[in-house]
Nucleic acid binder design. Structure first.
Length: 499
RNA sequence: GGCGGCAUAGCCAAGUGGUAAGGCAGAGGACUGCAAAUCCUUUAUCCCCCGGUUCGAAUCCGGGUGCCGCCUCCA
């Protein structure tokens, strides 16, 4: 199987061939750090997280770069509102970003460049464009001349005439042409500013990604990713700037993730229908959100509802129940042995291969997950009821699970122990319910403790032993009302928190 | 107005020419003191509608309807 990806450039799926065999250089547009991240950011970041994990799983050596936009109008506005320096705003939200996304288990990229750390590169690239006649200074600003780049619109499928006809572009008298965009903006008094050949100012939005990606990955690299909304104008402009400056192709494959919808509408701040990541993570365990996101293709819109989240939780619970059995087998001292021959276990034996085939098809996580679930059913059939008494079966079961763990890891699933997932993972809220920035507070859950539960289980065991089933059922119901689920098995009664 | 995407069971969601994956929910059965979990069986004669191409289409083509996104800061 070979990897195919849907390339926004050309709008079709095509075979993926890296510039240097076995190596992939990849740049993903990160966030502008002026506010908390919402589930839309989670979708984009998880999508590319899975992509990177899969590419590495498939044997590629991946250099993964993701930036922080840490200077722009919104940041300045926020700083003014709060009466603090802009750098304090960005620090606060970068910290919040890590706080949220570490919980989601995102890989750290190989580098996370910030615009303000790359002012010399940005100025140099801007100068290069001015010298080449592709950009022009005007009153302390520097604008990119769109008309000077014949390929403008090739990514987004737009043409310059239509854009002009659309005429929703602000007319600025300093621009030669309404479509031109700022590479460098003169700063107003009191605004953050850096020295430049055109006077004090700051970078425009698009130029930073060109400068930083080229610095870290070279003038031509393999993959450039981001949300669908960045296709135009952001990525279109990046291409124009970069290719006009270097005369070389910029990124070769453009990958864009779809949106998160709420009730079938785009989630956005202006509609007021957005959820911050930490709100969601206050309701469900992080992997539930990952499962939810992985259950549809990264390019499709995904509708966020309480119901779909509950379905994701149910699916993930089922996966963790397998891991629970795995842990029981290990505790019983079993070691992985070999799968039995036969057609019955074929879906399990073939799981990794089928998983890879689906992922090779433009990272089809939904189909990949389907294959994994098929294998799970087969694996469950092999599960010993009493691992301590069935060492051989336990060994076979462990061998089967070992086939599934790596693919599950690519999706970022089943990364914690089942014990933690079911017993302490519960509904975690920052203490005091704080959903604000940089809370940094411990996550807590209020439930009956293990000692208390074990006491109740013992009382119930005694009741059952004397055939007092009404008392046994009463204890079970009582615990259930407190959010604790009891399960009777061959080796005794186990418990887990329901949510 | 320009460009693009989507429409598959109660819900979510794969499948893009060979006769409908998977998950959730539901039903029946096995197991269990009863449950829970797990396993087995079961749940779309059919993939928005109408035409067409084809031996054969959910999948291709034409037309229609509905929903959504981008064209402005945005993951």
């Amino acid at each position: 199987m070979t990897l195919s990806v849907f390339n926004t450039m050309g709008n079709r799926k095509e075979p993926f061939v890296p510039l240097v065999p076995g190596k992939i250089r990849m740049y993903v547009c990160g966030v502008t750090v002026y506010d908390l991240c919402h589930i839309g950011h989670a979708r984009a970041n998880v999508a590319f997280d899975i992509i990177v994990r899969y590419l590495r799983y498939a044997g590629y050596e991946v250099t993964y770069i993701r930036n922080f936009t840490d200077i722009d109008d919104k940041i300045i506005r926020k700083a003014n509102q709060e009466g603090i320096p802009f750098a304090e705003v960005t620090k606060k939200y970068i910290d919040a970003f890590y706080e949220d996304f570490d919980r989601l288990g995102l890989l750290r990229p190989d580098a996370e460049p910030k615009a303000t750390d790359h002012i010399p590169e940005i100025v140099a690239l801007t100068e290069r464009l001015v010298r080449a006649g592709k950009a022009y200074p005007a009153g302390g600003d520097v604008y990119y001349s769109v008309k000077g780049f014949p390929g403008y619109g090739k990514l987004s499928g737009k043409n310059v005439e239509d854009l002009l006809a659309g005429a929703r572009v602000d007319v600025d008298e300093r621009k030669n042409d309404p479509l031109d965009f700022a590479l460098w903006k003169a700063s107003k008094p009191g605004e953050p500013a850096w020295e430049s050949p055109w006077g004090p100012g700051r970078p425009g939005w698009h130029i930073e990604c060109s400068a930083m990606s080229m610095k870290h990955l070279g003038e031509t690299f393999d993959i450039h990713g981001g949300g669908k909304d960045l296709v135009f104008p952001h990525h279109e402009n990046e291409i124009a700037q970069s290719e006009a400056a270097t005369g070389k192709p910029f990124a070769r494959y453009w990958l864009h993730n779809g949106f998160v919808n709420i009730n079938n509408e785009k989630m956005s701040k202006s509609l007021g229908n957005f959820f911050t990541l930490r709100e969601v993570l206050g309701k469900v365990k992080p992997e539930v959100l990952r499962f939810f996101l992985a259950s549809s293709h990264y390019r499709s819109p995904i509708d966020y509802t309480d119901r779909s989240l509950a379905e994701a939780k149910a699916g993930l619970d089922r996966l963790y129940r397998v891991k629970e059995k795995v842990e029981a087998c290990r505790e019983a001292g079993a070691v992985p042995s070999k799968l039995p021959p036969g057609e019955d276990v074929a879906p399990l034996r073939a799981a990794a291969e089928r998983f890879a085939a689906s992922m090779d098809d433009d990272f089809n996580t939904a189909a990949a997950l389907g294959h994994l679930f098929e294998a799970i059913r087969v694996l469950n059939r092999l599960a010993p009821e009493d691992p301590a008494a069935q060492r051989e079966e336990a060994g076979i079961f462990l061998a089967g699970y070992d086939l599934l763990d790596p693919p599950l890891g690519v999706l970022g699933l089943l990364r914690m122990s089942a014990r933690d997932y079911f017993r302490q993972g519960a509904i975690l809220q920052p203490a005091g319910g704080s959903l604000t920035v940089g809370a940094g507070t411990p996550l807590v859950t209020v439930r009956p403790g293990a000692a208390e539960i074990l006491g109740r289980i013992e009382a119930r065991r005694a009741a059952r032993a004397s055939k007092d089933y009404s008392e046994a059922d009463r204890i079970r119901k009582e615990l259930e009302a407190a959010g604790v689920l009891l399960e009777d098995g061959k080796g005794g009664t186990t418990w887990k928190y329901k949510e």
